[in-house]
């Protein structure tokens, strides 16, 4: 289990990295934490002509408070995000999700840029960026552009990244302090890919849900938002057992899970309902009355 031959290039700037990518004519691969790339190389599933090592680029690993948003550099390790006080304060649902990203050894090396660019449908970060309406900043030799998460993720393991383009940062809007949130996941073992996962951010107004975002994964080809269930929850009805049950039915009806070795479509559909109910109730109990509507 050794990789096929490749050239290795270490770069020290985003410009050098994107130039090298462009020069490789689509046969270049960026090496960051290597947690998905190295196994794929060793299985010979990937045969890049050149590995462009971006680990030595300065100032690409950071967490920044930009007022309305938190910006995270592409080379930031999962463990930095998991242990960040800024994230815990402003994006508590992300903070909790980070503990579910694989195992500690992987979190010490893996990067947010790598996870988002790899776009594994069963990975937490793509789903969290969908949930939180993240914006992704991409750079190529010629230009920079910003995409929303829903524009960035095209399909399983497929993003809108063009040849010669790299992800340089991702920014998340801060959660309102009054928002309630929850992250619920079932995996075979702690640290495994989720069989099903639901994450929620909601705001309440009296006995009603005023805003809600629901992200889910493990129940389709890509992570997604449960938009119908979101609409149901904010339709003006009070949040009671009836509405929760309706939401559970709605989210189960909205997914088309796959069957694989570890779980059938039916079990995953069952789980997404169980997790949605738990997440709604937990988020509701955490939410406080918003000061301004």
């Amino acid at each position: 289990m050794k990789p096929p031959p490749f050239e290795y290039l270490s770069v020290d700037s985003v410009q050098a990295a994107t130039a090298a990518l462009a020069a490789a004519n689509g046969e270049g691969k960026l090496l960051a934490g290597g947690q998905s790339l190295m196994p794929m190389l060793n299985f010979r599933l990937l045969r890049p002509s050149v590995l462009i090592d971006i680990n030595r680029i300065p100032d690409l690993a950071y967490l920044k408070d930009e007022g309305e948003r938190i910006r995270i550099g592409a080379l930031t390790r999962h463990r930095m995000i998991e242990t960040s006080e800024l994230v815990a304060r402003q994006l508590p649902v992300l903070s909790e999700a980070m503990g579910h990203v694989a195992h500690l050894a992987i979190r010490n090396r893996g990067t947010i840029g790598g996870s988002l660019s790899h776009a594994d449908p069963a990975a937490e970060l793509p789903m969290m960026s969908m949930l939180l309406d993240a914006e992704l900043e991409l750079a190529s030799a010629k230009r920079r552009r910003t995409l929303s998460a829903s524009e960035f993720f095209v399909a399983a393991l497929t993003t809108d990244l063009a040849e010669g383009e790299m992800l340089v940062s991702v920014s998340f809007p801060k959660m309102p302090p009054s928002a309630g949130w929850a992250f619920e996941e079932v995996a075979r073992r702690s640290g495994d890919f989720a069989l099903a996962c639901v994450a929620i951010c909601l705001e309440r107004s009296g006995d009603r849900v005023s805003h809600v975002r629901i992200g889910m994964m493990g129940v389709g080809d890509t992570p997604m938002r449960a938009t119908e269930t979101e609409a149901l929850l904010t339709s003006g009805r009070p949040l009671d057992d009836h509405l929760v049950a309706a939401a559970v039915g709605s989210i189960r009806a909205s997914v088309e899970p796959n069957t694989d070795l570890h779980a059938s479509a039916d079990y995953r559909r069952h789980l997404v309902g169980v997790l949605a109910e738990r997440a709604i109730r937990r988020a509701w109990s955490r939410a406080t009355e918003a000061r301004h509507g």
Partner: peptide, 15 residues
């Protein structure tokens, strides 16, 4: 179908 430790699952210290 279980040719790697992603799919051949063994208990860890947590389990």
């Amino acid at each position: 179908l279980t040719a790697s430790l992603v799919d051949y699952i063994i208990p860890t210290a947590t389990e």
